[in-house]
């Protein structure tokens, strides 16, 4: 329900600056994911938006209203924490009702809302249990339920899935995606270090590094048109192959990037590069080949299905046309068209 604007926001602890001037607009009803390596400031940024940390300089607007000095509970936010942060001494019902009760909601309204959101998350049979009697996945649902009950304008998630095991993580991810569909006008901000979560959930992704925004865009934009070498390397799995030296120079750039799925194995001698397979990983649906073509590190080639190429074999590789990413020595994409094409 809210449109959030950050204008040149910074955050310092003493002499250490963690957030170094961020301008960002998060649209109403959007699912925005902050992603980046650990220590990039993504959690701090979320906490600045929530109000749990104070902004050092710059302005934060919710629907055009400056909220720098508004306490968290008056911002109309709800937050889901990494460790769930359920009140251990309250049962599920009380956990979900606590915020509304403090807000002075009437008993009838409160009861109705709690039961409604419990039903939505299918935890209505757990209402009188204590958190310690719940499984990890159930706790996470209660934490989400508690947030929904508050009927927030902005929904904040701080790495909510990182304490769950792999299977549960996928299931809960789906749940959150569904939630976003159901609550179309609630703005959601989600922090994660996992780019798969980011790609699958986000309307738009904000890639952060070292307290600065590297790129903001839809998952497809980030994947297809990374603004710089960092984003190119961070988004996508397996990581984009980067080639330097003569490989890059041949294409008129200082670093050449190519995704593993954009490389084809071609008949001997027909490819741009030739190398020996040093290692193969069979993931069932895909095959990752690690090929030493004389670059610093072997490049990864992704082949669908069962391709049986023995380790030590020499193969010829050809990147797909138009799928080469060229970066100059500052890490920016090279704009000039490639002479060869």
């Amino acid at each position: 329900m809210a449109n959030i604007q950050l204008r040149n926001v910074t955050k310092s602890y003493g002499s250490v600056t963690v957030i170094k001037g961020i301008d960002l607009e998060i649209r109403r009803g959007e699912f925005m994911v902050f992603v980046g390596p650990s220590g990039c400031g993504k959690s701090t940024l979320l906490r600045l938006i929530s109000g749990l940390e104070s902004i050092s300089t710059g302005d934060l607007y919710f629907d055009g209203e400056r909220v720098n000095n508004v306490i968290p509970s008056k911002r109309g936010i709800a937050m889901v924490f990494q460790s769930y942060a359920l009140y251990p001494h309250m049962n599920v019902y009380e956990n979900m009702a606590f915020g509304m009760k403090l807000g002075g909601a009437g008993k009838g309204e409160l009861d109705q809302r709690v039961r409604q959101s419990a039903k939505l998350l299918q935890i209505d049979h757990l209402l009188d249990r204590l958190p310690k009697q719940l499984s990890g996945g159930q706790r996470q649902r209660v934490a989400i339920g508690r947030a929904i009950t508050r009927d927030p304008r902005v929904f904040l998630f701080d790495e909510p899935l990182s304490n769950l095991d792999a299977a549960l993580r996928v299931a809960t991810r789906l749940e959150i995606a569904k939630l976003h569909h159901d609550m179309r006008d609630v703005t959601m901000i989600y922090v994660t270090h996992d780019q798969v979560e980011a790609m699958t959930l986000a309307d738009r992704i904000c890639v952060l590094r070292d307290g600065r925004v590297e790129q903001v865009g839809t998952p497809t934009e980030l994947y297809e048109r990374p603004d710089n070498i960092f984003v190119a390397g961070f988004i996508g799995s397996p990581k984009m192959n980067f080639l330097e030296g003569e490989f890059a120079a041949a294409q008129g750039c200082s670093t050449l990037g190519v995704r593993s799925e954009h490389i084809d194995i071609v008949p001997q001698g027909a490819g741009m590069w030739t190398g020996t397979v040093v290692h193969a990983e069979d993931l069932g649906s895909d095959n990752y080949l690690f090929v030493d073509i004389g670059a610093k590190e072997p490049i990864i080639v992704r082949q669908p299905g069962k391709v049986t190429i023995p380790e030590g074999a020499t193969i010829s590789l050809q990147p797909r046309p138009g799928m080469l990413y060229r970066f100059d020595d500052t890490g920016r994409p090279v704009q000039a068209p490639l002479a060869a094409e």
Partner: peptide, 23 residues
């Protein structure tokens, strides 16, 4: 004492009390 957060004085003077000030 939840009313502390919305003390009318704070609003009337046009100054919000931030979380850190409140704490």
């Amino acid at each position: 004492t939840t009313t502390v957060t919305t003390a009318p004085g704070a609003r009337a003077s046009g100054k919000e009390v931030s979380l850190q000030q409140q704490r």
